[in-house]
Design a protein around this nucleic acid. Structure first.
Length: 199
DNA sequence: ACATTAAGTGATT
DNA sequence: AATCACTTAATGT
């Protein structure tokens, strides 16, 4: 990916290898960022959090090969993070200090392309999130949510509570329970305590 | 055995 | 679909 001479060496030299365990909060809402993460393995859940009532909304996952587009814009203006990121599973990243990323933007075309493309990807994902909220019903949003989770973690066994899903989709726990029940009756999933198996 | 937490239910708006 | 007011089931101590 970063085939240009020198770039890989710079990444190796200035990047910091970091590991996070599943469930660990990497960047909390309101904190300042000084690193751009390159995800090597695992997946990171990105959510928006409301200022006042602490409600949250799941946005998207970052998986191997991704970087966090938000972090770049955030670092540039030295703003507080407007999102929260949490390791979905055990995750390894390389943290690139922003000052290097900025220099590389002009120095290496492949780096610039990489950052631009990841911006583009996430922009499209965000549009889809908006589509989901405005045009789709809760049941399809839930199905898409489960599907994304399966893809991100590479496992069809999802270990979470109905309440957690409700937070992520900004819905009520009861609604999620009822929709899950229906999906189970339709044979799409099986349910257990703290467990959903997607078929 | 008891307390806690997750999940299910039905009524109401 | 949200909220409420429960009940039931599963788990931890």
């Amino acid at each position: 990916m970063f085939s240009e001479p020198g770039l890989q060496e710079e990444i190796a030299e200035h990047g910091k290898l970091m590991r996070f365990r599943g469930g660990e909060v990497i960047m909390d809402y309101g904190s300042y960022i000084k690193l751009m993460p390159l995800i090597l393995e695992g997946s990171i859940k990105v959510s928006r959090e409301d200022d006042e009532d602490g409600k949250e909304l799941f946005l998207y996952y970052l998986t191997a090969g991704d970087t966090c587009s938000m972090s770049f814009s955030c670092c540039l203006s030295n703003k507080q993070s407007v999102i929260r990121t949490e390791a979905e599973e055990d995750t390894t990243i390389i943290g690139i200090p922003v000052q290097f990323s900025e220099v590389w933007m002009t120095k290496y075309q492949s780096w610039r392309n990489f950052v631009m493309q990841s911006y583009d990807n996430k922009m499209i994902e965000l549009i889809r999130v908006i589509d989901g909220i405005t045009f789709r019903n809760m049941d399809t949003r839930l199905q898409e949510y489960l599907q994304k989770k399966v893809v991100a973690t590479g496992s069809n066994r999802i270990s979470t509570t109905h309440q957690e899903i409700a937070f992520d989709l900004n819905a009520s726990r009861e609604a999620i329970s009822r929709l899950l029940k229906r999906l189970e009756q339709e044979g799409e999933i099986s349910l257990g305590r703290n467990l959903i198996i997607v078929r």
